Computed example of a mutant assay.
Amino acid sequence: MDRRSLIIGYLLVAAGSALFSSKAIFIKLAYEERFDALLILAWRMVFALPVFVVVGLFELARRKREGRPMPDGKSVLGAIGIGLIGYYLAMVLDFAGLLYVTAQLERLALFTYPIFLIFIGAAFFGMRLTSAGVIAAVVSYLGLAFVFVSDLRMEGSNVTRGTLLVLGSAVAFAVYQLVAKRYIGRMGSTLFTSVALSAAAITTLAHVFIARGGLDTSMSTNYFMLAAATGLLATVVPSFFVNAGMGRIGAASTAMISNVSPLLTIYFAVTILGEEFTLPHALGTVLVVGGVGYHTWSEFKKRAPEEV
């Protein structure tokens, strides 16, 4: 692959990671107007759903035009099912957790999903548990404990509830990562992502209509702008950026670059939201990012030569 294409790939992944890191900031700003996790999640999906439907239909039309095989029903149902776990369930838990914890703690807790992945993979999917994985787990969760204890002292007992909800989201996303690969291989990443996220969006909206009887439209223009930013700038655009970049530089390099995401979230949380950044936050961040980074680097060394 030529140097220019590699540079474009790195830039796309970096930009996608930066946009992903803005999600918690937009949500926290929306909570200042309406303290309702389900509402902002529903409006996020309102803005994101049309894009994923159009992209999915475009991909199907292109396959038909090129004479390529269409996805079988079993694969589509599998993509829908795993999409409900990795996106709908994970998003509901994550957005609910953000009601109780800072954007910094949320991002660090969510960032530990690779640790859940290696242990769940070893327990149920026949993956080998390595010493690097165990070391990464110990270091990462020690760091998360520093931030958790610090926030618990400042914010109170709700921090425990919020942290557990976000960790539940991380578990759901880890399961998604483990199962999704087989369906991506059958359907292709673009079509799989469109189907999985469309299913999650439709389920989210159905959840709101069943639970609330409709979608509240009484919010301010600022709220709708934040919802649109959450759905488009922090969901749709980075999804395609990261996928496009990964196609150029590979999964291992993508994971390495994505390690900057928590740092960006913390920077935005401090500068935009005015959250405190204390010594325990700094130490915890170093340990969490360092632990996950160490695991990612170990995987990078094993996989990078194969990708090249």
Rank of each mutant, 00 (worst) to 15 (best):
G156K: 02
I115D: 05
T163A: 08
L93H: 13
T102P: 06
V134M: 11
L191T: 05
R186N: 08
L164C: 13
F146N: 09
A79H: 11
A79I: 08
T102G: 08
R182Y: 04
V101C: 09
G143L: 03
S169G: 07
V175I: 14
L144M: 13
G81Q: 07
A96L: 13
L191F: 13
Y141L: 08
Y113A: 01
F192A: 02
T160S: 12
G97N: 08
V147G: 01
R161I: 09
L144C: 12
L105F: 15
M187Y: 15
I85F: 04
A96E: 13
L165V: 09
S169I: 06
F148I: 03
A96C: 08
F116L: 14
R186L: 07
L167M: 15
Q177S: 11
G86Q: 08
G97D: 13
L144A: 13
Y88L: 14
V171R: 04
K181P: 03
L129D: 04
I80G: 03
D151N: 04
L164P: 12
S140M: 09
A90D: 10
P114S: 05
L84E: 11
V149L: 12
M127F: 15
F124M: 05
L178D: 02
M91Q: 15
L99C: 12
E106V: 07
T190G: 15
V92I: 10
Y183F: 13
F124T: 04
A90Q: 14
L84R: 11
Y88F: 10
L108I: 05
Y141E: 01
N158W: 14
T163Y: 14
F192H: 07
A90I: 05
V171G: 02
Y88S: 09
I135E: 00
V179Q: 06
G168F: 13
V149A: 01
L98C: 08
L93E: 12
I115T: 07
L105C: 15
E155A: 15
F116H: 11
L152W: 02
Y141T: 03
G97I: 09
G97A: 10
A170M: 12
E106L: 04
A90T: 08
F146P: 09
Q177G: 02
I135N: 00
G185M: 12
T190P: 10
S150V: 00
L98I: 05
A123C: 12
T160H: 02
G185Y: 14
F173H: 11
L89S: 08
T193Q: 10
L167Y: 15
V101I: 14
F111Q: 11
V171Y: 05
G162Y: 14
I135D: 00
